[in-house]
């Protein structure tokens, strides 16, 4: 018995110094973008003045799928968080000659779970519609790189993942006098466990979570 205990002790002495513990199982069990239940509310402050309140309103059907409806100001967003991914319903249209022309309606994947440091995601949409004999094309490409876990820049939230988003949109009204319009936006989003978005930072704006209230199950 003494010999066995000696071996175990020696092994622990060898192994332990190389060990580093981190809350990996906590991160795995956390919801990094809770879009339910109803009543959950996020209050954000916008740098330079203003605030934004996002609330989970209810469950509804959108694009033939049951989803959660979130209200932000006068806008509604539709989200599904299941089967290992977070999806958002996108309803994109463009204004042409005084008409609102629908380009596409689809569920777009925002994130895939579980997040991990170095994870990369690419999503894209390429579509076109014809209105008044003119082709309107729309291309959207978003690259995301995940880093973390880290503490949010304000130091309030730990075990966050930072999503670096690079989004490019090309709209083109394919008729004389119009050239493709390309828009590039780059932002960083910090997601905290069981809270969701705690900070969005781009070159010209900064949005920070000031309070979060979970809804009633």
């Amino acid at each position: 018995m003494k010999r066995f205990l000696t071996i175990v002790t020696a092994l622990l002495l060898i192994i332990l110094p190389a060990c580093e513990s981190n809350p990996l199982y906590f991160r795995l069990s956390s919801d990094y973008f809770p879009v339910s239940p109803a009543g959950a509310t996020w209050e954000y402050s916008i740098e330079g003045g203003g605030s934004r309140i996002v609330t989970v309103v209810d469950q509804t059907i959108m694009g033939e799928r049951p989803c959660w409806r979130l209200q932000s100001g006068a806008d509604y967003n539709y989200w599904i968080n299941e089967d290992g991914k977070l999806e958002k319903f996108e309803d994109h249209s463009v204004l042409f000659n005084g008409f609102e022309v629908p380009i596409y309606q689809a569920w777009i994947t925002m994130f895939e779970w579980p997040l991990a440091n170095g994870m990369t995601l690419r999503d894209s949409v390429s579509t076109q519609a014809v209105s008044q004999g003119v082709t309107l094309s729309h291309t959207w490409i978003r690259d995301q790189i995940v880093s973390g876990p880290e503490v949010s820049p304000g130091g309030e939230w730990s075990q966050c993942y930072r999503i670096h988003q690079n989004e490019m949109t090309i709209n083109w009204i394919q008729t004389a006098g119009f050239a493709p319009e390309t828009t590039v936006s780059v932002r960083n989003i910090w997601l905290a466990p069981d809270v969701g978005i705690v900070r969005i930072q781009s070159s010209d704006s900064l949005i920070t979570l000031t309070s979060f209230t979970g809804g009633e199950e």
Binding site: A18, S21, L24, A116, T120
Partner: peptide, 19 residues
Amino acid sequence: GYCMSRLASGGGVDTESWD
């Protein structure tokens, strides 16, 4: 004993944890 846990996802890898 001790458990080394490692998560890989989407081409990324989280820091290993020894617990």
